[in-house]
Design a protein around this nucleic acid. Structure first.
Lengths: 206, 206
DNA sequence: AGTTTGAGTGTACGTTCGTACACCGAAAAC
DNA sequence: GTTTTCGGTGTACGAACGTACACTCAAACT
């Protein structure tokens, strides 16, 4: 039952991160007070400073943590796609699954990307940019893109990431409405197919 | 120099809307206090209530106002496109121009769509949904989409709106960096061309 | 064993917040 | 000319905010 000092600190730190993430589900970091977080965790306000310099620093930690989730998703997509034809369906399936399992993380990223403190917004956009780049290298390994410039690959993956982010946000916006969500997912499938058709016919012209 | 009562009220109301919009440029409605707005306007806090019930109500008014701007943009796009081939370039040009001229409105919509009070978020998403629907009927008038189902048109315009919203957000994110913006705009052009290629080859299969 | 370290406590401050209430004075209504 | 309406004022309140400072006490170090 004994607990080392570091363990205890880590446990409180986790509690703070979890509490902040939970409180962010119905508002935003910029409207979140240190005292709210402390109360939720069950510590006195000033104890917060033992772990983070400010709410903004807390936000940066949450960004890191959230993108671990998102990268896990990308790994899942890679693992499940040995080059099959239903790449679109399975990828979207994985997206939907991750959105549900890591709802709070996705919600947090979507909100703070647009409305968070400046540093948080920048961190998120940097990560999303990295994401696009990774997807671009994945796409480069697909057959049919051999003639593509790396420029065009980057732009295409930007489009795909944008569409998938929008899909994730739409899903988050319709909680507990399976019919609505079904429609969103089906739309996302069609959109990806449209983009794919565009990609397959690209550079055969011009 | 005399000023009717209604005129004066309207002037103050405008000042409140403008002040709120300005203050929202560096934060969010949910972090905006009634007192900040009042101070910016130069009235006493309680006078705020003569015009709005709450910050949230103010937000809804700003949504209405902002979408007047956005609709003006759509009108510009329609007016400038009598069916020419450079539809993409001119449409994006109009988007960029409007983003710059109505920067605060676009910024507000982008932020509050993700992070605003619930009612504000809903109002914005409702408007964007309307936007997509309008674009769909515009697309239906284009040659080459005669064989399209209204369903597919809706989905396509959803994709286009998503990409354009993302483009506008990216432009807003890079103020005072013409080179970066140039790249964003060029990418948007290519993305739209990719989508267009997909659209032109759609339904020729399946 | 004695000392140091550091997570968490408790009090206390000045500030900002939303809002209640009584009030003012000029335009509007009569 | 008198009364009413109403946008804006001024004061006043309790609550919540960030944070400074002095404290406790058990784990960790020597």
């Amino acid at each position: 039952m004994t607990e080392t000092r570091g363990e205890r600190k880590e446990r409180t730190r986790r509690a703070i991160l979890d509490a902040a993430l939970a409180l962010c589900e119905e508002s935003s970091l910029v409207a979140l007070s240190l005292r709210q977080v402390a109360k939720e965790v069950g510590i006195v306000p000033t104890a917060f400073y033992r772990h983070f310099d400010s709410i903004e620093a807390l936000g940066l930690a949450l960004v890191d943590e959230s993108f671990v989730s998102l990268r896990a998703m990308l790994l899942d997509v890679r693992r499940s796609n040995p080059g099959f034809d239903d790449t679109i369906d399975s990828s979207i399936g994985i997206l939907v699954e991750h959105v549900h399992r890591q709802r709070a993380h996705f919600q947090f990223i979507a909100r703070e990307r647009a409305a968070g403190p400046a540093q948080v917004r920048e961190a998120i956009n940097r990560e999303i940019s990295l994401f696009e780049h990774e997807l671009a290298t994945d796409l480069a390994r697909l057959p049919g893109t051999v003639t593509w410039s790396s420029e065009d690959l980057r732009i295409l993956s930007g489009l795909i990431v944008t569409a998938m982010v929008a899909t994730a946000e739409a899903i988050l916006r319709s909680p507990g409405r399976p019919d609505v969500e079904k429609q969103i997912v089906e739309d996302a499938r069609v959109q990806l197919r449209m983009v794919l058709v565009g990609a397959l016919n690209w550079r055969s012209r011009t």
